[in-house]
């Protein structure tokens, strides 16, 4: 496979053709923040946290959907990018009802970690506090749209890994919501296989196993790439 040479944050690095910028950057030990990206799933480019500056391009590019090219000069942590990332996390915190102190995933939440990482101790934007009903109709799992960041990791996991496509998005803009089948209660879904992979891929506490209390959700998003790798070795 042909090798490419890029400059990332002033360092010359090499990569294989076909890799995305995010893969190259992470492969070189730089911890670029992401939220909607999950290894193994198709990249979505929706959270805009992995934005990087590429010399010669007018606007920052989302690293997860930008293919690495020969001779690219990439900056991952400029002051401007840090400011944008902080703003995006603040917008997410204000969008739904993120109350960490009572959340099942408190302490393990990706959104919470990002907020801590960027030193967000207060949110400058108005809280929208939408009233979103919780779906507890499934025997094992629950869904609280109030904690959802609309990253669609669960949607892609259900479609690409499990192949059930029970989950999808409905609505538009800020009124978007994760929908089960054609907006059915989860417990009545005929397509859901109760595999629970969506719960594992969820970065926040929006999807959770029932009977878990504050801070008790055990997250294992690395399960998804592990399943895919396992499949690949066994299919050969």
């Amino acid at each position: 496979m042909p090798a490419l040479t890029l400059t990332i944050d002033g360092r010359l690095v090499s990569s294989r053709a076909g890799e995305t910028l995010l893969q190259v950057i992470r492969g070189n030990g730089i911890d670029l923040p992401t939220l909607c990206y999950l290894e193994g799933l198709s990249p979505r480019g929706g959270c805009r946290l992995c934005m990087v500056e590429v010399a010669g391009r007018e606007k920052p590019q989302a690293a997860c959907v930008t293919p690495a090219e020969e001779g690219m000069v990439v900056t991952t942590g400029s002051e401007r990018l840090q400011r944008y990332r902080r703003q995006i996390v603040e917008l997410l915190l204000a969008e739904r009802n993120h109350t960490c102190s009572v959340c099942v995933v408190n302490g393990q939440c990706e959104l919470q970690s990002l907020a801590a990482r960027f030193g967000i101790d207060h949110v400058r934007y108005a809280y929208l506090s939408p009233r979103l009903p919780l779906d507890a109709s499934h025997q094992r799992f629950g869904m609280d749209p109030g904690r959802c960041v609309l990253c669609a990791r669960c949607v892609r996991t259900c479609d690409e890994v499990e192949g059930a496509h029970t989950l999808d998005l409905r609505g538009r803009g800020v009124r978007s919501c994760i929908s089960i089948d054609l907006n059915e209660p989860w417990g009545r879904s005929e397509t859901c296989t109760t595999c629970g992979k969506c719960v594992q891929s969820c970065p926040t506490g929006a999807l959770f196993e029932k009977w878990t209390a504050r801070g008790e959700k055990v997250r294992a998003p690395e399960l998804i790439p592990r399943i895919l790798a396992w499949r690949e070795t066994h299919e050969r």
């Binding site: 929706g46 997410l92 803009g173 800020v174």
Partner: peptide, 18 residues
């Protein structure tokens, strides 16, 4: 724009509302 944002990316979805 707020009504017509598709909701895929955060800046447009939540930013237009703010």
């Amino acid at each position: 724009c707020q009504d017509e944002s598709c909701g895929k990316c955060v800046p447009c979805r939540a930013g237009t509302v703010q």
